[in-house]
Design a protein around this nucleic acid. Structure first.
Lengths: 337, 337
DNA sequence: AGGATCACCGTAATCGTTTACAGAAAGGCG
DNA sequence: CGCCTTTCTGTAAACGATTACGGTGATCCT
């Protein structure tokens, strides 16, 4: 595993200067003879250009970072799956950061942009603090934030519309005749938690249903915590006929708890989730879910970042991806092929 | 967004040489007074060291690449989730490569090590060709391969033991009284496909059961393809009383097909899978599955790579992670809490 | 006092590339 | 033949850090 050849090695073997080597390798106009000599020397030596040296000179790393709380979350995963090919096609590598939703960690990532190991960053903060906004605006490289930030923040922003999303789901449940619709949410100090909490109350009002706090339970955005919250909810409001879950992991927990309690889904209790993760279609009964366009948001984020990387000084843009209700057996009982 | 400060900027402001700045920032012994001046200049300027320049000189990037076919596959995902924190704790960033199981793409990644943008690589080739082995041995940076490579290949290697794994599952099914045990596999030219095919035949022999080719069907390692294969299998061998699936995605497809066909699981047909993905515990009936230790393999790979990064010239090592049968309702019918 | 020792610091080389600039070779023209 | 273009090539200076080496004072010893 000797040290690999450099343009100097090639220059010596080909009997030309390193400048000529560089020119040939970059396709700049050069005399035919020189081109041949350089190319064959490079070939024989198995030359591969050193990307670190190139980056130092060019000030571009061809790397982009993606920072989310936990790659295990299917929503973030769906985003990575979209982001990766878009970046790859544009010649960028993807550097992954898992922050565990830790604010200090997220700020670290933002400050780390100063190290210039990436050309840009796509980030999904679960909570958005003042510190975040400061760090984002001071960032030394382009940033795209997925998840709403306050209007006026000078950063490219991809938003889901969970307000409309919750509304779609509740309309659907209401149209099926459900009137006692419970709501299981994640922490209220998170971006999605607060948005969906407000949306639930609004949607009830729009439907002319009363807000009953016995119908609301808060856990966390995971299956186990969701299941526990659903258990508590069932105990407090045994007469409910539907459960709106703030995400699909919670909804999966709900299915399990309802089954153990002998409640049939959807005959006794209809269940709806949000995010439309892959698993939603794979369980039985298949889960009715509001797609917030995870894949589209990922792709949009990647494209927005690429656009800015090619065009540094444009105004920040906000892209909102519309939600879409995907109806399956957990509300209608009907098999979806 | 002006160009950030460099040690030169700091040196000017502090009225010292760049060498002194570097020494102070690296904690080398320096006069108290100089230290103060440099640190306060750095502080005022918001200095962040340029990792590219540092890498050029130090010949270390503090990055490690992970290459797999598709991050959407829960098995690879489980590995990433283990690998990431181990690397992070050691100060390495993770660069993700999705190769779509394309051989040319995988070879590209291996050759790309010559660009020196990472210090090492963890790779899971789905098929292992001669070209792979050549490229691995010629690689310009340490490589760890997850998935068996031929004995004697000079590379760190993490193996699952799917032979024993299949054996565990078939023993279990046999002990439950099942005698007509179908097998749904993925492509035979893949590493896991061929290993599991051989293992199935061996296990039958060991149990004294005949090998009936009507009980074997080949599809692919995904849910939809698995479901299709299970349909074909049911048509050809309607009398089967158990199905061994070469991975859990296929098994999930099997559950769906069996349900649509009105076969009860496990009363009519028991189902077992492999990999023990998260989802296996989340569906109903929960899936009995052979854990091949995805998480352990990921962690072992990361640790092996770190070890080699600290200690370049040791002999290649082979680590085999033992399988473990996780029994759930899809074979026993019993609720697992 | 003069030399040796020591702590600290600055100059310059280095990592591997790209690229501005100037020099050299070659061709065209008067 | 001399001069001007044109085309190609080599020298050297970046990029931003680390670090070997030698120089400068100060301190210590005889």
């Amino acid at each position: 595993m000797s040290d690999g050849p450099t343009i100097t090695t090639i220059a010596e073997r080909a009997g030309v200067s390193i400048a000529s080597v560089s020119r040939v390798l970059n396709g700049l106009p050069t005399r035919e003879n020189t081109v041949r000599r350089v190319l064959s020397a490079a070939e024989e030596l198995g030359y591969v250009p050193n990307s670190v040296a190139r980056s130092l000179k060019s000030r571009r790393t061809n790397q982009v970072a993606f920072a989310m709380a936990d790659i295990g979350n299917p929503v973030y995963l769906a985003m990575v799956r979209e982001i990766q090919p878009v970046l790859k096609a544009a010649g960028y590598r993807l550097v992954l950061h898992s922050t565990d939703a830790d604010v200090a960690d997220e700020i670290d990532v933002l400050r780390g942009l100063g190290e210039r190991y990436v050309d840009g960053l796509i980030m999904i903060p679960l909570r958005v603090s003042e510190a975040h906004l400061k760090a984002v605006e001071a960032a030394r490289a382009p940033v795209v934030i997925i998840g709403s930030v306050p209007d006026g923040t000078r950063v490219d922003n991809i938003r889901a519309d969970s307000r409309t999303g919750v509304r779609l789901a509740l309309d659907h449940l209401h149209s099926l005749g459900r009137r006692r619709i419970g709501f299981v949410n994640g922490p209220l100090d998170t971006v999605p938690g607060s948005a969906r909490s407000i949306a639930y109350a609004e949607a009830l009002t729009a439907l002319g249903l009363p807000y009953d706090e016995n119908l609301v339970e808060i856990g966390d955005f995971y299956r186990a915590e969701g299941a526990a919250a659903v258990s508590r909810l069932l105990a407090r409001a045994p007469d409910l006929d539907a459960i709106m879950c703030a995400n699909d992991l919670i909804a999966l927990g709900a299915l399990e708890v309802l089954r153990r309690n002998g409640r049939r889904v959807p005959e006794d209790v209809a269940v709806a989730g949000m995010d439309d993760i892959d698993m939603a279609a794979a369980v039985w009964p298949a889960l009715t879910s509001v797609s917030l366009g995870s894949a589209e948001r990922g792709r949009a984020a990647a494209e927005l970042l690429l656009d800015r990387l090619g065009n540094g000084e444009r105004e920040p843009r906000v892209v909102t991806v519309p939600p879409r209700l995907v109806v399956r057996a957990s509300t209608t009982g009907e098999e979806t092929p």
